[in-house]
Structures are given as C-alpha cells and as structure tokens.
C-alpha cells in the first residue's frame, strides 16, 4: 500500500493498517470517529475525547516517548505538522512505524482528512456515511445565517503578548460557515500572529472570542484598557468558546461552527434536535 500524505511524503505500508494511533488530539478523535475502538492502540497525554481514550495506554508526545511508542507497535501513526517535527517522524519511521501527516486550511480539508483515514484503515463506507451527515449539518448551519450581516471576529489565543488566530487558520473558514468573518484581514507569515493594541484598534472587531465578558473585563481589558474602545467591547460582544472545539480540527468541527453561530447570530434559530 503506497500513500502520499498531505505534506507530499510517500508512506509505504506492507498491508492495510490494523493497529493505528494518532499523535494529535484532533486525529485521535478522527480515529475513534471512523475506526473500531480496538484498532486504536494508544493515545497521547493531551487526549480527552471521546471517553474511550481513558481506557487506552498513553504515549507521551512532549517530549516524544519513542520507546513507549515502539512498545505499542502501531502499524501506522497519524499526525499533523504542528504536532510532530519531521525529524521525530523520521526517527519513528526508522523504528519501522510509518508516519502519515494531515494538514487543514478549511473545514472541507478536515472532512477530507476523515475520508482519508476511513480509506486507509479499511472503513471507507463508514467514513463516507458519517462525513455526509456532517456535511448536511454544515449546510443547515449555513442556511440559517444566509442573508445576515457578517460580523468581524477577533479570536484571541494568548493575552500577554496578544496572539490571535490569523487569516490562514481553520478558524477563518469556520467563521465563514457560521455567518461571520475573521477580523484579521492580512495574511501573516505565522498562523497565529502577535498583534499590537494599535493594530487591534484599527481592526475594530465586532466580536472578540477569548473568554466570558466578566473574566475578560477583569483580565484582558484591564491589562489593555485601550481596547475598550473596540466595537466588540462597547456592544458587550465578548464570548467564551469551548477551547477544545475551537482548537481541534476534528469531527467535532461541525459543533465548533454551530457554537460560533449560536454566539455570533443568537437570533438565528437552532436546528431542532441539535445542541
């Protein structure tokens, strides 16, 4: 079996993998979404979803526990370029464990990633059915925000210094689907750029994501009182999003989009039976 991963690397497998593992929490979620639970041989120290991860052996990824990984002997390891360095991947490869990288810029990339995992692990039909269901939910969310104004959203990842989700991150596409836009309108060299207070004042976001207003008021806006001039603060549109949902490109990406929609367009009715 010869595969080409999202980094263009060739990954050769003697036979379809029966024992798999992921080195990123989002990919662990994908494996449990598509594979039989018994197929996932281990998880990492950061994995917390689904509940089945609590019954699996843990392999540390920071620092990388090569010996622990070797002990679990997976046939294939999935990871993303932000989580595992190419040097570590090469070392893992030399231990006889192939490494397959995925990368995502859009929600569609995440869904394609799920389909890829299904195809590679021998669960193509199950993956297709589940991805079709996710796509239907996304279409429904898009439908609900059709014709509404698109507020510009600034999502803060760290407060001192201020780091935010840049334009070239998955969040931009999630916001588009949720009926909004990323307030960061320039592409920086890094996906999560550091911004100055003046730059944020110039952006003047309509919505700020980073924490509940009460906490942000006593922390972020106390540290940077100048940013109380932004439209988001003046209209009290400062919200907390669920960290794992927001940060992970996993099958729960649809829940993440739904959460964004419910915060940004609270008056657009939720689809019955969801959330």
């Amino acid at each position: 079996m010869v595969l080409t991963d999202d980094l263009g690397r060739t990954v050769t497998l003697p036979e379809p993998p029966r024992r798999v593992m992921a080195l990123a929490p989002s990919l662990t979620e994908m494996l449990f979404f598509v594979c039989d639970p018994g197929q996932v041989v281990a998880v990492t120290q950061n994995d917390n979803f689904p509940a089945a991860v609590n019954h699996k052996p843990v392999v540390n990824t920071y620092p990388m526990d090569f010996e622990g990984l070797l002990m679990q002997k997976p046939d294939l390891v999935f990871t993303t370029d932000g989580m595992t360095s190419l040097a570590d991947a090469e070392r893992i490869g030399k231990m006889g464990i192939p490494v397959y990288y995925q990368t995502y810029q859009t929600v569609e990339d995440v869904l394609t990633g799920i389909l890829d995992i299904g195809r590679i692990t021998g669960h193509a039909d199950r993956a297709t059915a589940r991805v079709d269901s996710l796509r239907a939910r996304l279409r429904a969310i898009e439908q609900r925000t059709k014709g509404l104004s698109r507020p510009r959203v600034l999502s803060i990842t760290w407060t001192d210094p201020i780091y935010v989700y840049g334009k070239n991150t998955l969040l931009t596409d999630k916001l588009r689907l949720a009926g909004a836009a990323n307030a960061v309108d320039s592409v920086f060299k890094v996906p999560y750029p550091a911004l100055s207070r003046e730059y944020i004042l110039r952006l003047n976001p309509d919505v700020v994501l980073g924490g509940p207003l009460g906490r942000m008021d006593s922390t972020f806006f106390r540290l940077y009182p100048e940013l109380k001039r932004t439209s988001a603060y003046r209209h009290r549109r400062v919200y907390r999003v669920t960290d794992d949902l927001n940060a992970r490109p996993s099958p729960r990406v649809v829940e993440a989009v739904e959460e964004l929609r419910s915060l940004i367009h609270p008056r657009s009715a939720s689809q019955p039976g969801q959330r």
Binding site: S196, E198, L201, R202, E226, R229
Partner: peptide, 8 residues
Amino acid sequence: HYAIVHLR
C-alpha cells in the same frame, strides 16, 4: 488620535 496619544 487615541493611538498616537495613548499607545505610541
């Protein structure tokens, strides 16, 4: 004006 006087 705010950026010049209160930030820069």
